[in-house]
């Protein structure tokens, strides 16, 4: 806990010790970390395997642009508002796609994201298909100087990642988290015990969608430019996120951290190789899925009985001879 606090402090001080490129990279890492936690909560705990989360990333990004440009909101207020609107929007979307199960659900989420992309491409005031840049006065409203703005968007990224991780952790520790785990373990038994599976999943979906839109807003606050293809990219906002969660360890709280570190290590070392980089990612994902379906964290955990986020049962002293 203390180590974590010191680590966060060192990271929070990054604008004073890191260069601009590193700052940007770290900010990106935090936002990916947050996306990975959200997807992990949805797929790894609630069993909602969505391949359409880019719908909310892009929606959040576009809401940031629309609300600041036409609504005159402060960028941070716009990002938060984007989260609220995304939550409202996710309810009817869920009513539609929750009728689908398994692979059909996954396809349904993807189709939804495509609908979002095509819809925003129709809005000519937001640049239509070619997109638009955040106007200078909006950018200036964030902070007067460039370094001030970069530091602020860095802190926003760090802060949002910490908030998301803390929320996911506390949620899973709560009573509702217990029911969520129960549903994942056995839907039949959970339903038979009076757990409303549909409502629990809906809650998870709505909350994840809201947070994903907030992260999306922050992503495009960093980028300052948006276009439908970038905002609703299935590669950037879903495939990479799934990669992170799967190689890190789906359904664990530590997995996304390891996955994010691995992903960025690979990206920073292999990005110059072009397509080969994507092939390497793909092969690695396949190997991990086949050889270690619980991801890298699963491997570590089976070797050393270790937990960064104490979530599962601990064998207490009553029965010292029994292993969990």
């Amino acid at each position: 806990m203390i180590i974590a606090a010191i680590g966060v402090l060192i990271l929070a001080a990054a604008p004073w010790w890191a260069g601009r490129a590193e700052l940007r990279l770290l900010g990106e890492i935090y936002l990916y970390l947050a996306l990975a936690y959200l997807w992990n909560l949805m797929a790894g705990y609630a069993g909602l395997v969505s391949v359409g989360q880019q719908a909310y990333v892009g929606f959040g990004g576009y809401m940031l642009f629309a609300l600041t440009m036409f609504g005159g909101l402060h960028p941070i207020a716009a990002v938060l508002a984007a989260g609220v609107i995304a939550a409202l929007l996710s309810v009817p979307v869920a009513a539609l796609i929750f009728r689908l199960k398994g692979a059909y659900f996954a396809i349904g989420t993807w189709v939804t994201a495509e609908v979002f992309r095509l819809s925003f491409a129709q809005v000519s005031s937001l640049g239509g298909g070619s997109g638009s840049s955040l106007p200078v006065n909006v950018v200036k409203s964030l902070a007067a100087s460039r370094s001030g703005r970069e530091a602020l968007s860095y802190w926003l990224a760090l802060g949002s990642a910490i908030v998301v991780i803390a929320c996911v952790y506390l949620f899973l520790r709560s009573r509702r988290g217990l029911t969520l785990t129960a549903i994942r373990d056995s839907e039949v038994a959970a339903a038979g015990l009076g757990i409303n599976i549909w409502r629990t999943k809906l809650e998870v979906y709505v909350v994840t969608s809201a947070f994903t839109a907030i992260i999306g807003g922050l992503i495009f606050l960093q980028k300052l430019r948006i276009s439908p293809d970038a905002a609703f990219s299935v590669n950037d906002w879903t495939a990479f996120v799934i990669f992170i969660v799967v190689i890190g360890g789906i359904g664990t709280l530590e997995g996304p951290i390891i996955g994010t570190i691995l992903f960025f290590l690979l990206r920073e070392t292999l990005a110059d190789l072009g397509t080969v980089y994507l092939i390497v990612l793909g092969v690695l994902a396949i190997v991990i899925m086949l050889k270690a379906p619980k991801g890298v964290w699963g491997l570590i955990r089976s070797r050393f009985d270790l937990e960064l986020f104490p979530l599962s049962y601990r064998v207490k002293t009553d029965t010292p001879d029994k292993g969990a």
Binding site: L178, A182, S186, S312
Partner: peptide, 15 residues
Amino acid sequence: QLFPSLSVEENLLIG
């Protein structure tokens, strides 16, 4: 149909 990720007590509490 117990919940394998949960402890005995947690299984009971879910009920």
